[in-house]
Computed example of a mutant assay.
Amino acid sequence: MADYSESVSDGVTLDTLTGERFKIAVNRKGAEMISLAAKAFSGEWKGFLYRDGETGKPESGWANHATVMGYYLHRLWKEQSHYRGQLIKGGNHGFLRSFDFDAPKVGENSLTYHVPADRVPQDFYPLRVSLDLTYSLSERGVTVEFTFLNEEPTLDAHVSFGLHPGFAVSSPLTAKLLLPSGTYARHMAPGNFLSGEIETITHAGGESPFPSAELEGSYILGLDGVPERTFIIDDPASGRRVSLDFSEAPYVTLWSDMHPFLCVEPCWGLPDSNPPTAFENKPGIQVIAPGAKLSRSFTILPSILS
C-alpha cells in the first residue's frame, strides 16, 4: 500500500503518494502532477517531469508540469464555440487546468479527484457531465484514468480531453523520441487550428521522423494506423527513459518550447478548425450516451538509466 501525505507550501496544496518504486505529487489546483519520480538503487528519488517538484513559476517559457486538459483540449476558435446552438467560452485547454479540486479520495495506491456536474461552469459547458480523474501506482508505473459520467437523461454529451506532460530531458534537440511502427496521420494546424490538411506518414518504428527543430509548432498525430502504441523518450545524458503506453489514445501531440523538456501528450480529441464547426461536430470529439460513462487511461513508466 502506498503512503499518502498532504502538505501546503507557498499557498499550494499538494497530495503526495509514495509507493515502493514510484512517487507522485499532485497540485490540487488543476489536479496537476508536479512531480513524477522513480527510486534509484541508492534509495534516492529522481524526478522525471520538467522542473520536477517546483511550485513557483519559471523566469521564461512554459510554466506547467503536466496540464490536465478537458472538457475540450487545445484551443477554441476565438476562445468560443457553439454547442447545440448555445454559445460557450473558454481559454486554452479548458477549465480543468485552473479548477480548485477538493481533497482526493485516497485508495490503497491511488488518488481520485472529482468534478461534480454542478461545479462545471455553465458558460463553459452546459450539460451535466461529471469527471473522476484517477492517478494510480503499480509495477507498470503511473496510470492516469479519466472517467466521465453523462448525467443527462436524454442527450448525448460531447467531450475531448487529455494530459499535457512535459518530461525532463537534457535537450529536446538531442533526446531520442522512439515511435512505434505504423501509419501516422499528421493533422496540419497552422496557428494551432486545424486546416483540414492531413499528411500520411508511414514509419518503420524507431527514432521519430518528425524534426525536433520544429517541435515549437507541434505535431498532432492520429494513431488509427498505429497498432502498438508505446512511445519512448530515451535521454542517456540525463539518465532518464520514459515509456508511454497510449493503447487507448486515438491521438498524440508532440511539442516543446525548446526548454529542457519534451511533451508527448495523449489526446482524445483535436483542436478547433479554421473555419470552426459546431462543438458537437468537432473532429475527434468523444461521444457519451445518456446516462453512460466514458473511461480512458494511459500509463507512464519512468526508468533510471545506468
Rank of each mutant, 00 (worst) to 15 (best):
P58H: 11
E59C: 02
T174N: 14
L294W: 09
D272R: 03
G70N: 10
L270N: 06
F124E: 13
Q80K: 13
E20F: 01
P227K: 04
T154A: 12
G11C: 09
G70W: 10
D100V: 04
A38R: 03
G191Q: 14
E197Q: 12
A175D: 07
F95V: 13
P165G: 11
R128E: 14
D235E: 10
Y251E: 13
L76C: 06
R51Y: 02
E79Y: 11
G141R: 09
K89Y: 00
L36K: 02
F48S: 14
M33C: 13
I34W: 02
V142P: 00
Y135L: 08
R21P: 02
V12S: 07
A157M: 01
I198V: 15
M188R: 15
A204R: 14
E228V: 05
L17R: 00
K89N: 11
G91N: 15
D245Q: 09
T67G: 04
V115L: 15
N109S: 15
E152R: 10
F279W: 06
G284R: 03
V142C: 05
K57P: 02
G19V: 07
A66N: 05
N27F: 09
G91W: 13
G94D: 10
F193W: 08
F148N: 00
H203Y: 12
V120A: 06
G222P: 00
G141F: 00
K176Y: 05
G269I: 06
P275I: 04
R21I: 09
I198H: 13
Y251G: 04
M188L: 15
K57W: 08
P283Y: 03
C263Q: 03
A2G: 01
R240M: 11
S181H: 01
S35K: 01
S98T: 15
I220K: 00
E32S: 11
H259C: 05
V252R: 10
K89F: 00
L149M: 11
P180S: 08
A237Q: 14
F161T: 10
L262E: 03
F167W: 14
A2T: 04
A249D: 08
K293H: 15
L14S: 10
C267R: 05
E108N: 13
D224G: 05
G284C: 08
S42M: 07
I233P: 12
A278W: 12
P271R: 06
N281A: 15
K46I: 14
T143W: 01
G56T: 14
L87E: 14
T253P: 04
T67K: 01
S160Q: 03
S130A: 12
I24L: 09
G94T: 06
Y71S: 06
